[in-house]
Simulated scan of single mutants.
Amino acid sequence: MLDVAFGSVPTPVGDVLVAVTGQGVVATSFGDGPAVRRRVLDRLGALEADDPGRARAAREEMAAYFAGRLRRFTVPLDWRLTSPLQRRVLGTLHETVPYGRVTTYGGLADRSGAGVPARAIGSIMGGNPIPIIVPCHRVVAGSGLGGFSGGEGVESKRWLLTLEGYLPPTLDWTL
């Protein structure tokens, strides 16, 4: 049976959970707690692993990212919570939109070759099981930031894009 190791990282946008299988990071989440972990386990039909070391690299990279020291995640990913369409679009995003850059929903639709409209790209971003590492926050609307379903919504998106230098910091912004 599949097992999943969990780890959590305190960040300026709240605790961020990483869930790791033997293949790689299968999920991340804004927020942590028994209910969040149970949802991941239920979606996977998995058990919780008693192996905190398995999540160590993902936790360390996540902490380094939020400290402004990491620009590219290198931990392996486990895409099993994505459909083939999601995998194509999210994989394209992960591989082609680097730290500090953004693309539009329509641009990602074109770049991925998935044959879906920009609105569908928004739905795929909202269902991203590995946010931050697979940077759905780097997908914006042609007329502004667009939406964001992680953390505190668009404010979390704004914070992440400010961290990456895409948006200028506001007077109250802190790392």
Rank of each mutant, 00 (worst) to 15 (best):
residue 2 L to A: 11
residue 3 D to A: 13
residue 5 A to W: 02
residue 5 A to C: 07
residue 7 G to R: 00
residue 9 V to E: 05
residue 9 V to P: 04
residue 10 P to V: 06
residue 10 P to N: 10
residue 12 P to F: 06
residue 13 V to T: 14
residue 14 G to I: 07
residue 14 G to W: 06
residue 14 G to C: 07
residue 15 D to R: 14
residue 15 D to S: 09
residue 16 V to K: 00
residue 16 V to P: 02
residue 17 L to K: 00
residue 19 A to G: 02
residue 20 V to N: 01
residue 21 T to S: 12
residue 23 Q to Y: 09
residue 24 G to P: 10
residue 24 G to D: 08
residue 25 V to E: 00
residue 28 T to L: 01
residue 28 T to H: 02
residue 29 S to I: 03
residue 31 G to E: 06
residue 34 P to I: 06
residue 35 A to W: 11
residue 36 V to Q: 08
residue 37 R to P: 00
residue 37 R to T: 01
residue 38 R to Y: 11
residue 38 R to V: 04
residue 39 R to T: 13
residue 43 R to Y: 03
residue 44 L to F: 05
residue 44 L to I: 04
residue 45 G to I: 08
residue 46 A to K: 05
residue 47 L to I: 06
residue 48 E to Q: 15
residue 49 A to Y: 13
residue 49 A to S: 15
residue 50 D to Q: 15
residue 51 D to L: 10
residue 54 R to L: 15
residue 56 R to I: 03
residue 59 R to A: 05
residue 60 E to R: 15
residue 61 E to I: 09
residue 61 E to Q: 15
residue 62 M to F: 04
residue 62 M to K: 03
residue 63 A to Y: 12
residue 66 F to A: 01
residue 69 R to D: 15
residue 70 L to Q: 12
residue 74 T to D: 12
residue 75 V to D: 07
residue 78 D to F: 07
residue 80 R to H: 03
residue 81 L to G: 11
residue 82 T to S: 12
residue 82 T to K: 02
residue 83 S to L: 11
residue 83 S to H: 11
residue 85 L to V: 12
residue 85 L to W: 03
residue 85 L to C: 05
residue 86 Q to C: 02
residue 87 R to E: 13
residue 88 R to P: 01
residue 91 G to E: 08
residue 91 G to F: 06
residue 94 H to W: 13
residue 95 E to G: 06
residue 96 T to Q: 14
residue 98 P to I: 08
residue 102 V to D: 06
residue 106 G to I: 06
residue 107 G to V: 03
residue 107 G to P: 05
residue 107 G to F: 06
residue 109 A to D: 10
residue 112 S to W: 13
residue 112 S to I: 11
residue 112 S to Q: 10
residue 117 P to L: 10
residue 119 R to L: 13
residue 121 I to H: 00
residue 121 I to C: 03
residue 121 I to L: 07
residue 125 M to Y: 10
residue 127 G to H: 14
residue 128 N to Q: 12
residue 130 I to Q: 01
residue 132 I to T: 14
residue 134 V to I: 15
residue 136 C to Q: 13
residue 138 R to E: 04
residue 139 V to D: 07
residue 139 V to K: 03
residue 144 G to P: 04
residue 146 G to K: 07
residue 146 G to N: 05
residue 146 G to T: 08
residue 148 F to Q: 02
residue 151 G to A: 08
residue 152 E to S: 15
residue 154 V to F: 10
residue 155 E to V: 12
residue 155 E to N: 13
residue 155 E to H: 14
residue 156 S to L: 02
residue 156 S to G: 09
residue 158 R to D: 01
residue 158 R to W: 02
residue 158 R to Q: 07
residue 159 W to A: 01
residue 160 L to I: 08
residue 163 L to H: 03
residue 165 G to V: 09
residue 166 Y to L: 10
residue 168 P to F: 07
residue 170 T to I: 00
residue 171 L to V: 10
residue 173 W to N: 00
residue 174 T to R: 02
residue 175 L to C: 13
